[in-house]
Design a protein around this nucleic acid. Structure first.
Ligand code: FES
Ligand code: FES
Lengths: 135, 135
DNA sequence: ACAAATGATACTACTGTGGTATCATTATGC
DNA sequence: GCATAATGATACCACAGTAGTATCATTTGT
């Protein structure tokens, strides 16, 4: 029951680090050193973040990455979506539905509740929030 | 974000079917026919349920399986535990913790809340409940 | 021109899930 | 007592998703 994969995890770490630098361009090499993430894997992740518009990239000597949008607006759930697809727990737990009537299914209601609760809790979490810049 | 794997799914289906038969011995062959689960896979699952004390088994002609405990006391979460390990979402989402201080981590609190909420909802769900014998 | 950075892309390795196959053991009924 | 119908035990195989690597092309600053 893993909610977050390595991709997302590393992405969050990298973004937190870059956010803390407040506008200073950060190269992949620096992130590798500080965060101890395997270099090629991290590069792949940064490239995705760039393509998705979360980071801006600068090539050449002195190049690297910058946040493309403010840390307050980079949401955890969006990152999850990028690397793992839409966050949802609210499919029927069972492949071929068990209950006779899906509309009255008790279990289904419970699952919807859980999903909604989880979203309510996680939706406001942003990079800014994770580095303590915001409650 | 799969909460339930096929093992567990099939186990629940099989148990529901057996429970509905109210004390009549049910053979694997019958379950295969009715539930359309691949035979060897189902057999493996039934054997696990037997070893775990959820089912009693009877060998030989006319043999099969019976619930070893009443349907009201076979809980979904216990089945999940058998086939997938302890149900928990409340590890830190990130492999190596991000936040400086785990005790004050906001995200962690949210995750605990989600976990607790999910448990509160799912804990009472039993086989009896799934076949409509109990709210 | 050269070096230092990223872009693009294809490939490999590992792990968990889902599923098979085989042979041994036990109980029943003729 | 033997054939048959069931389960027990165990080892194996296949697929998919995750995790990670490798390579070469492109851009940029000095
Ligand atoms: S068991 Fe899935 S909708 Fe009821
Ligand atoms: S980020 Fe995991 S405990 Fe804070």
């Amino acid at each position: 029951m893993k909610l977050i994969t390595r991709d997302t995890d590393y992405a969050v770490r990298a973004l937190c680090f870059i956010a803390k630098k407040r506008g200073e361009i950060v190269a992949a090499s620096q992130l590798v050193k500080e965060l101890k993430i395997p270099r090629p894997f991290l590069r792949k992740i940064l490239q995705v973040l760039n393509r998705k518009g979360v980071l801006n990239s600068y090539k050449g000597i002195g190049g690297g990455f910058l946040l493309a949008i403010p840390a307050e607006r980079i949401y955890l759930l969006d990152l999850v979506k990028i690397f793992q697809g839409q966050f949802k727990l609210n499919d029927c737990l069972f492949k071929k539905k068990i209950c006779p009537n899906i509309n009255t299914c008790n279990l289904r209601k419970k699952i919807m509740n859980i999903q909604n609760y989880a979203l309510k809790e996680l939706r406001p979490v942003s990079i800014a929030c994770l580095i303590g810049r915001r409650k």
